[in-house]
């Protein structure tokens, strides 16, 4: 038996909205410690990694490890049927070929349940090494979304240059060039609005804006986003999922041919 109840059901809605355009299908691995997901987009340029701890749920039970193959646009459609304030419970039996979703209104006057077919998926699992990154930037997620959107007007790629003074995003194309420079915040009164750069070594990397714009769909999940970078390795774009865990996107860099 698997059952996970989340009073803040809107987190599920936001999470699905964050990944459904990037991934068509994925396996939700459920165990006694929580729910994880790892999947690459169809062109294998990016990887999504989700971890939700059992402790973060209001009720959590998983008697036997369960891998649920899910068609994400379908799950997203069902999640849209939940109200923003609804409590969401996900349930499945051990040998299930379906997953049940129960949406309860806060006042308990409306309860909806949906059942969705699971799909057979055979996906490879990648080992993500523990890495010490050269630069880690924390910034408001809305600012990151804005920068990715704005620079997409100029070109397909963004060059992210990080030094101890701050971080610079640049794009160029037929119409010209654009640079957006963010300096490290002088005071950190409002933690959510701060830009914090933690640098061991300056880096300058090139990434496809198309993917960063997909990642930025996770903006409603968290006020801050964390970018981790080292020379010639995938960029990590991390959004915290409240007390539950995290949503991480890995993006392979563009490399000099």
């Amino acid at each position: 038996m698997f059952e996970a109840r989340l009073v803040q059901g809107s987190l599920w809605k936001k999470l699905l909205e964050s990944i459904k355009d990037l991934l068509n299908e994925a396996i939700f691995d459920c165990s006694s410690t929580g729910i994880t997901l790892q999947a690459m987009d169809s062109s294998h340029v990016s990887l999504v990694s989700i971890s939700m701890n059992s402790d973060g749920f209001d009720t959590y039970r998983c008697d036997r490890n369960l891998s649920m193959g899910i068609h994400l646009p379908s799950l997203s459609k069902i999640m849209k049927c939940a109200g923003n304030d609804d409590i969401i419970t996900m349930k499945a039996t051990d040998d299930a070929d379906t997953v049940s979703l129960v949406f309860e209104s806060q006042n308990n006057e409306k309860v909806s349940d949906y059942e969705m077919k699971l799909i057979d998926l055979d996906t490879e699992h990648l080992g993500i090494p523990e890495t010490e990154y050269s630069c880690v930037v924390k910034m408001p997620s809305s600012e990151f979304q804005r920068i990715c959107r704005d620079l997409s007007q100029l070109g397909d790629s963004v060059v992210i240059a990080c030094t101890k003074e701050g971080v610079k995003f640049s794009a160029s194309g037929e119409l010209g060039t654009g640079n957006i420079k963010l300096c490290q915040s002088a005071s950190t009164d409002k933690e959510e609005e701060a830009v914090v750069v933690d640098m061991n070594e300056a880096v300058c990397l090139t990434f496809a804006l198309r993917y960063l714009n997909f990642f930025a769909k996770a903006t409603p999940l968290s006020a801050q986003v964390q970018l981790s970078m080292s020379k010639d390795v995938p960029l990590v774009v991390e959004y915290k999922i409240s007390e539950l865990g995290f949503l991480r996107f890995y993006l392979a860099p563009k490399i000099e041919d």
Binding site: E124, L126, G127, K254, I255, D257
Partner: peptide, 14 residues
């Protein structure tokens, strides 16, 4: 010119 890398270039299958 720059070429788009893939994730499997960096992370091995477990």
């Amino acid at each position: 010119s720059v070429k788009q890398g893939t994730i499997s270039q960096f992370f091995a299958t477990t």
